[in-house]
Nucleic acid binder design. Structure first.
Length: 435
RNA sequence: GGACCGGUAGUUCAAUUCGGUUAGAGCACCGGCCUGUCACGCCGGAAGUUGCGGGUUCGAGUCCCGUCCGGUCCGCCA
């Protein structure tokens, strides 16, 4: 029985099951809040109801409650629905935990060190706030699928065990693959591009792996990439427009179907203007420079301080919490990125900044075989090592481009969670391989 | 790879410039009370090898050396 169904069942007898999230004992009985598949439900258990041994009732037990649905008016935002409660006529224990919970799940906030939280993830995830964060992340992934499916994209699944990395460099995990060495995918980039020739528009929601030994609140070594690639674009602005469409759809879906979670998390969804501000990297450096007094000009990338400054500026001057930065230098972008014919040394690429953090990278790709082979060599790479990739170029690719959004980063910034790990069910970082 | 910071009860934190009696508090836990709670409330209780090893000292959670573990930020990136 869903929360919505309970809403319409006032006066009826229902049977529900769940885990005991918290018990508030009073002299006449207790309020017992159940954790269920789609929210917390308050039950009222008077002392002496059938099969109910209130003294034996413990947080963490799994129970089945039978009772009448009655109207209520509850103040606790973690409970959903809040306009009904179940007055138990019987309560049956299905399972007793073998040890008391190691973490206090009854309070409004989990007052834990992030490390304690993550070490105890099998339990801490049962807290309403942690659960709600994962639901928001799920909603963003769901919106990505729904929106792009409606836009004519085909969902693809590409291998995560690869012969070579898409981005090159040392940040790739090696794995033993029978009698050979293989690598964990850093990106579905090559496969997406091949997919463009098959379906014109493709997307994938999947894990990517980065072996960088970074230790910050915005990096994990396995994250979920919301990837897309689209053919027959006129410019990379088509890709940016698609992202705007997605963000608008995603915020709409969250507002309509994830309202209880958003309310509990006290989240403020960003407005997504129909057109987002966009500046070239050079201009971005100037803006950040004038705000901080530092000189960023000539830097090939944005540093984290600039990302924060630029977002502040974008909100104040243009009323947008999102800001595109374009035209990163060729040297800083992968070899498949198309150069701007009008601006030598610059690429037709973009990042999207949101609330102080880079959440997306994208751009137009090189589709011509000769151009791609030439740029590979200019990067000091051997085209022979990219044979199957270049096969697609030789067989012909339409003009195309795409992007990748870091799901955990997007989730974390929407919820204003400081550490990306808290937007992830079981984060992997340099120090953390379990749980 | 670099810079900074930290490790005290199950947990989150205290512990007075410069070292000083028996290392405290909130929450959780245990016992009792409370006719409707909303992070319930009230009374009581138990709970610690101060990460580990060594040193200085009459005396070390506090100072010094070593060691282990971790966090934040930077580089790099989503």
């Amino acid at each position: 029985m869903s929360a919505r169904d309970l809403d319409g069942a006032v006066g009826r007898e229902v049977r529900v099951h769940g885990a005991v999230q918290r018990i508030r004992r009073l002299s006449w009985g207790a309020f017992v809040v159940l954790r269920r598949h789609d929210g917390l439900l308050q039950c009222v258990v008077a002392a002496g109801v059938e099969a109910a041994d209130l003294d034996a009732l413990r947080e963490g037990q799994y129970v089945r409650v039978t009772g009448e649905v009655r109207q209520a008016s509850l103040k606790d935002a973690s409970i959903s629905p809040r306009n009904v409660e179940v007055h138990a006529s019987s309560i049956e224990c299905l399972l007793d935990p073998v040890e008391p919970l190691r973490i206090d799940l009854t309070k409004k906030v989990l007052d834990l060190h992030i490390d304690t939280n993550l070490d105890n993830r099998p339990v801490s995830l049962r807290h309403p706030v942690e659960r709600a964060r994962l639901r928001i992340s799920e909603g963003l992934g769901r919106a990505f699928r729904e929106y792009h499916s409606a836009q004519g994209f085909t969902e693809i699944r590409t291998p995560k065990i690869c012969f070579a990395g898409a981005e090159g460099g040392a940040n790739i995990f090696k794995v033993q693959y029978f009698d050979r060495e293989a690598f964990l995918a850093q990106s579905p980039q090559f496969y997406k591009q091949m997919g463009v020739a098959v379906f014109e528009r493709v997307f994938e929601v999947g894990p990517v792996f980065r072996a960088e030994p970074h230790q910050t609140s915005r990096h994990i070594n396995e994250y979920t990439s919301l990837d897309l690639e689209m053919g027959f674009i006129d410019s990379f602005h088509d890709v940016m427009a698609m992202e705007i469409g997605y963000l608008r759809a995603a915020m709409g879906l969250l507002a309509s179907e994830y309202a209880p979670e958003l309310e509990m998390l006290e989240a403020d969804l960003p407005e997504v203007p129909a057109a987002l501000p966009s500046v070239r990297l050079e201009e971005a450096h100037e803006i950040a420079g004038s705000m901080s007094g530092q000189d960023f000009s000539g830097e090939p990338d944005l540093d984290p301080e600039e990302e924060r400054l630029l977002c502040e500026h974008s909100l104040r001057e243009w009323g947008s919490e999102f800001l595109f930065v374009t035209h990163f230098p060729s040297s800083k972008r992968p070899f498949y990125t198309m150069d701007d014919p009008e601006r030598p040394g610059e690429t037709l690429s973009f990042d999207l900044l949101f609330r102080g953090l880079e959440i997306t990278t994208g751009g137009q790709r090189i589709h011509g075989y000769q151009e791609q082979a030439a740029k590979l060599m200019a990067f000091g790479l051997d085209p022979a090592g990219f044979e199957s990739y270049l096969m697609a170029h030789r067989a012909g690719l339409p003009p195309h481009g795409g992007l990748a959004i870091g799901l955990e980063r997007l989730t974390a910034r929407i919820l204003r969670v400081e550490n990306i790990r808290l937007a992830c069910m079981f984060p992997r970082d340099v120090k953390r391989l379990v749980p």
